[in-house]
């Protein structure tokens, strides 16, 4: 090590921008561009749909969302376009879907990440992902041909048993064809389970081994370990997964159109037929003209607004809950 004999090194040029700098610039423009593209697409959808729906909004005013009657061709007078019944149908069927899908999905995801033997995991994941690959019209046909008729006796039984209970009994009213809010919700539950499961599983698998070890070393049972280490770590991600599932459930069109019964109806009775916004659009768009068409597009705008609202709400909830659960960082 004779430093003195070394020739002086070339002076490093700290300001030089080589090809790597160019790569960085291209990369940053590209990512910025794609990010902006998403916003642009969202904005364009919003602008064009609102413009197309404007005749209906103009004719109905705020009644478009507060009116429960939907009558495009009345015997006398003007057509009435009220989205409320369909918004209700969308909300109820999606809620039922989540009620069933979330516990099942979280259960499957926990099983796959924490309990299942390694050999079983791969095949199980494949099967669940295959469920996501089934076209929704197939679910709809299955629902209308098999599920709905098969559920009628069960609905009837529930009506007989629970129908008499005050207040709660109103959920289990008289049963019709089996094509109703409940059946739509159940079919949707099956359809959103794969997506919720698959994302939840990914989230659970990111929980560090160290966190789980910490819980186990304190004498936690497996369930206590899951509650103490896995859930707090993955709460935000799981809510995100549920929101994606909810988005799919609210937007699902053809399957719901086939099994929800097709009635303009607001009722507590889960066994009554109803309709959802997406289903109405697909059922009636082909035969619509003028303001009627505008009203159907208006349903799309309302659905869009509902989805965005729920997502924003969910983010607020997650932030609050995480601050409470994890303690504030600052």
């Amino acid at each position: 090590m004779t430093l003195t004999n070394n020739p002086p090194a070339a002076k490093p040029t700290l300001t030089q921008r080589g090809s790597s700098a160019l790569g960085d610039r291209v990369f940053s423009w590209w990512t910025l561009g794609t990010g902006l593209l998403v916003l642009a697409i969202l904005g364009l959808i919003l602008i064009t749909t609102v413009r197309e729906a404007w005749p209906a909004f103009d004719a109905m005013g705020l009644r478009f969302i507060t009116e429960r009657v939907w009558d495009p061709n009345p015997a006398t007078g003007d057509a009435i376009f009220g989205a409320l019944s369909f918004a209700y149908g969308t909300a109820v069927s999606s809620l039922i879907a989540l009620l069933f899908a979330v516990p099942v999905s979280v259960g499957i995801a926990l099983f796959l990440t924490e309990l299942a033997p390694r050999r079983l995991r791969g095949p199980a994941v494949t099967v669940i992902d295959l469920l996501a690959a089934v076209p929704s019209v197939v679910f709809g046909l299955w629902g209308i041909l098999v599920v709905a008729p098969a559920l009628v006796p069960i609905y009837q039984w529930m009506h007989d048993v629970f129908g008499g209970i005050p207040l709660l009994g109103r959920l289990f009213g008289p049963v019709g064809s089996g094509r109703n809010f409940m059946t739509a919700g159940l079919i949707l539950a099956i359809m959103v389970t794969p997506i919720i499961t698959s994302i939840t599983r990914e989230v659970f698998s990111t929980v560090p081994r160290a966190d789980k070890d910490a819980a186990l070393a304190l004498g936690a049972t497996r369930w206590e370990m899951i509650r103490g280490a896995v859930f707090p770590h993955s709460f935000g991600g799981v809510v995100g997964a549920v929101m994606l599932g909810l988005g799919r459930a609210m937007g699902e069109t053809i399957a719901v159109a086939l099994v929800i019964g097709g009635a303009t109806n607001i009722t507590a009775n889960l066994f009554a037929p109803g309709n959802s916004m997406a289903a109405v659009i697909v059922q009636q768009f082909g035969e619509s003209t003028g303001t009627f068409t505008a009203a159907l597009i208006g349903l799309g705008v309302v659905l869009f607004a509902m989805t965005v609202l729920i997502n924003v709400l969910a983010q607020v909830v997650v932030r609050r809950a995480e601050a409470r659960m994890k303690g504030s960082v600052a």
Binding site: P208, A210, D211, D213, A214, A215, A217, G228, A229, P232, H233, M325, K326, G327
Partner: peptide, 10 residues
């Protein structure tokens, strides 16, 4: 443990 591993809690 080797790496401090507090839970993501308060």
């Amino acid at each position: 443990f080797q790496k401090p591993n507090p839970f993501p809690k308060s």
